[in-house]
């Protein structure tokens, strides 16, 4: 691969990869490992800089986390919080209340109530109801409650899947039943 005439030329980056441009351009440049000692002062400076950096980052991280928490709450818990909950990011988990769904496809406007055994909350969404959405189904809506007591949601998830399966154990596919539910539950 390497011819003798190339070997004879001693470019400093041959063998020591990633060289700086200067060394490339002027082969006689100083060996880089010759920084002038500025030890004592430099070390203190570095230590102080590190502590300041770590402290400010920690402050930023803690502050940032506090502002961006999303709480998982049930309707009762959200109601119990009263005014404190206004504007906070919440994932509200509950059931879609009976006879509460109002869906206007023309405006893509969906209104329904999410309830648990103790409380009921009006939820407004500007999204299409997902395939499985219907009365009595478990949902999680992400958003926040306004001072008018209406929960505006950006994200609506149906939570009714059988997700507690052990790895690898599938029952035989029950196609009749599944295709039937696919038909039955169209909104």
């Amino acid at each position: 691969m390497t011819r003798p005439d190339e070997q004879a030329e001693t470019l400093p980056w041959a063998g020591a990869p990633v060289a700086s441009q200067e060394q490339f351009l002027s082969p006689e440049a100083d060996h880089p490992n010759q920084g002038k000692p500025a030890q004592g002062k430099g070390k203190l400076f570095v230590a102080v800089a590190l502590i300041v950096a770590a402290a400010s980052l920690t402050w930023l991280v803690v502050g940032g986390v506090e502002q961006n928490l999303v709480y998982y709450l049930t309707p009762s818990e959200l109601t119990a919080k009263g005014d404190d909950a206004i504007g906070a990011n919440v994932r509200l988990g509950g059931m879609v209340a009976k006879d509460s769904i109002r869906w206007r496809p023309e405006e893509t406007e969906l209104k329904f109530k999410v309830k648990d055994h103790g409380a009921e909350i009006e939820v407004h969404a500007s999204s299409i109801p997902p395939e499985m959405f219907r009365e009595g189904i478990g949902v999680i809506v992400e958003g926040s409650i306004g001072s008018d007591g209406i929960f505006q949601t950006r994200r609506l998830m149906v939570r009714h899947s059988n997700e507690y399966k052990a790895p690898g154990d599938q029952e035989t596919v029950d196609l009749d039943y599944m295709s039937q539910t696919l038909e039955d539950n169209g909104t």
Binding site: M95, H117, G136, H160, S161, N162, E163, Y164, A166
Partner: peptide, 30 residues
């Protein structure tokens, strides 16, 4: 309707009700 009343999220779920009719425990999953 009963599943909705109990707040079943998925199957299987198991509820433990004591002799007085109070829910004491719930197991999510099998």
């Amino acid at each position: 309707k009963v599943a909705v009343a109990y707040g079943v999220y998925g199957v299987p779920e198991t509820y433990f009700v004591d002799a007085q009719g109070t829910v004491k425990h719930k197991k999510t999953g099998p």
